[in-house]
Design a protein around this nucleic acid. Structure first.
Lengths: 110, 110
DNA sequence: TCATTTAATCGTAATATTGCAATATACAAA
DNA sequence: TTTGTATATTGCAATATTACGATTAAATGA
């Protein structure tokens, strides 16, 4: 198969999985950290910084953009990417709720 | 390829990606939510609850166990799974640090 | 012992992901 | 217009993931 049976899960479960999936590759983690670190926008310096081929970085950027976590502005021949703070915040709420499930859990059982 | 070039990333980036990857499938999200919800351990009721075949659930449980997020106790013919609170907490710290990167970010740039 | 129950493992088909070379596109400068 | 620069897209090979039927393994009960 190779494809998840999304129809049997809730929207929330699918959404969490979608967000998590995009963080499931170190290159995308590194790209996001770099964008946060520079605060200001960055272009294809990412290719040099990360150390993967340009088409590969471009592909990862596309996935991040598809989820709305980053946005890109064309500036001349180069493109300037940065974090979409609004969408990042919304994503964070969803993920935090999932991660914080343990605070209501009483005791170990096994 | 199909395999990530983990050697060019930091341990932290790879670890974040590993954790995120395991959350990147709705079935594993659902399993974890169910284990949290029941507080007490649950066995292969997960198979009925989730709606995937038994070998599929078993496979997902294995991945969660490999990362240390859950543990399983054999009880007679059945196996009782539950959250490993200690490891969950450690994972959460790592993920929270990643998700909270935005709190130091000043202003939008693009 | 033998049948039953429960869960893990094996094998495999269908599909997804990763990475990059080659190419295309879009813009700027000469 | 031509040339160069930066990025996106295409195509493809290697590998990973998902799902499940068939089987195995382990424990219980008759």
């Amino acid at each position: 198969m190779g494809l998840a049976k999304t129809e049997i899960f809730t929207d929330e479960q699918n959404q969490i999985a979608l967000f998590a999936k995009v963080f499931g590759h170190p290159a995308r983690v590194a790209i996001l950290q770099q964008l946060f670190k520079l605060d200001t926008c960055i272009c294809g310096d990412l290719v040099e910084e990360i150390g993967l081929a340009q088409p590969t970085i471009s592909q990862h950027l596309k996935e991040l953009k598809n989820l709305g976590l980053i946005k890109g502005n064309v500036e001349g021949t180069s493109v300037c990417y940065c974090i979409d703070k609004q969408n990042w915040s919304e994503m964070k709420n969803t993920m935090l709720q999932f991660l914080n499930q343990d605070i209501t859990l009483q005791s170990d059982c096994c």
